[in-house]
Computed example of a mutant assay.
Amino acid sequence: MKKNMYTRITIVLFIIGLMMAIQYNTIRKPAERDTRDIWAIREELSEEKKRHSTLLAEIRSLNAVVDRYEQSEETNMQVVLSETVEKLKLQAGLTEITGPGVILRINPAPELVAMGYEIEEVSPDLLIQLTNALFKYGATNVAIDGHRIVLTSAIRDINGKTTVNSVPLSSPPFEIYVGTNSHKDAQKMYNSIQASTFIDSFYLDNFNLIIEEPIDELTIPAFENSLTNDFLKEVKKGE
């Protein structure tokens, strides 16, 4: 009888000791805390809210298209379908577009030209950084030296030549067209680039980055190449 009692007491003490050990270990090794300051968290929250707003806008747009399909008679279905195709082509950059924007000019440094130095290629990495910044600043459409930037565009070095969409860029000077939604956005774009470090970065590479005043009528050419499609497949009629 006493042996059973001792056994039970031993088990209870073992469980209590195990729980105390776990608690002690938890106190000594607390879970990793988020050490970011309030502004970093607010900035991340702001980006998430922007993505949320963009998704809601896309959902509303798609719902509107569905409603039009449902409300249209069969005779008008072709018209609605054609409008949808044109809208998708516009979003994909397959059509020329005119609207407010800013023109950037990349010129070789005058002192290099005066001294007769050979003008080198603009670095692909610098162009990539600039292009990413332009979209971050609110650009809707970008064309570099007449080559439209789309989702599948690539800026890279091919055999010592800087290329956009696999086409070599012209030797500087050349222009970058940046389209925006409104003149106000174009003005913000102008101010953001002026306040950035890109002017100094291009100067270090012996180029002058010139930002012209915003204009209301800037024509950005369409994407000239054919878009590649690795995932979607056309469904045959009747399937």
Results as ranks from 00 to 15, higher is better:
M1F: 08
K3S: 03
N4M: 03
N4V: 03
Y6W: 06
I9P: 00
V12M: 06
L13A: 15
L13Q: 07
I16E: 05
M20E: 08
I22Y: 13
Q23A: 14
Q23I: 03
T35R: 13
R36F: 12
W39Y: 14
I41P: 02
I41C: 09
I41K: 14
L45M: 11
E48H: 08
K49W: 12
K50R: 14
N63Y: 03
N63C: 04
V66L: 08
R68M: 10
Y69L: 13
Y69Q: 12
E70S: 02
V80R: 00
T84E: 09
K87V: 01
L88P: 02
K89R: 11
T98P: 02
G99E: 01
G99H: 05
P108G: 01
P108E: 00
P110G: 08
A114M: 15
G116A: 10
Y117M: 14
E120W: 11
E120I: 04
L127M: 13
L127K: 02
N132T: 08
F135C: 11
G138S: 10
T140Y: 05
T140G: 08
V142H: 07
A143T: 05
R156A: 15
D157C: 13
D157N: 15
I158Y: 10
V164P: 03
N165P: 03
E175S: 14
A195C: 02
F202V: 10
Y203K: 06
L204D: 12
N206Y: 00
I210C: 01
P214E: 05
D216E: 14
T219V: 09
T219P: 01
N225M: 06
L227M: 10
N229I: 04
D230T: 13
D230K: 15
E239C: 04
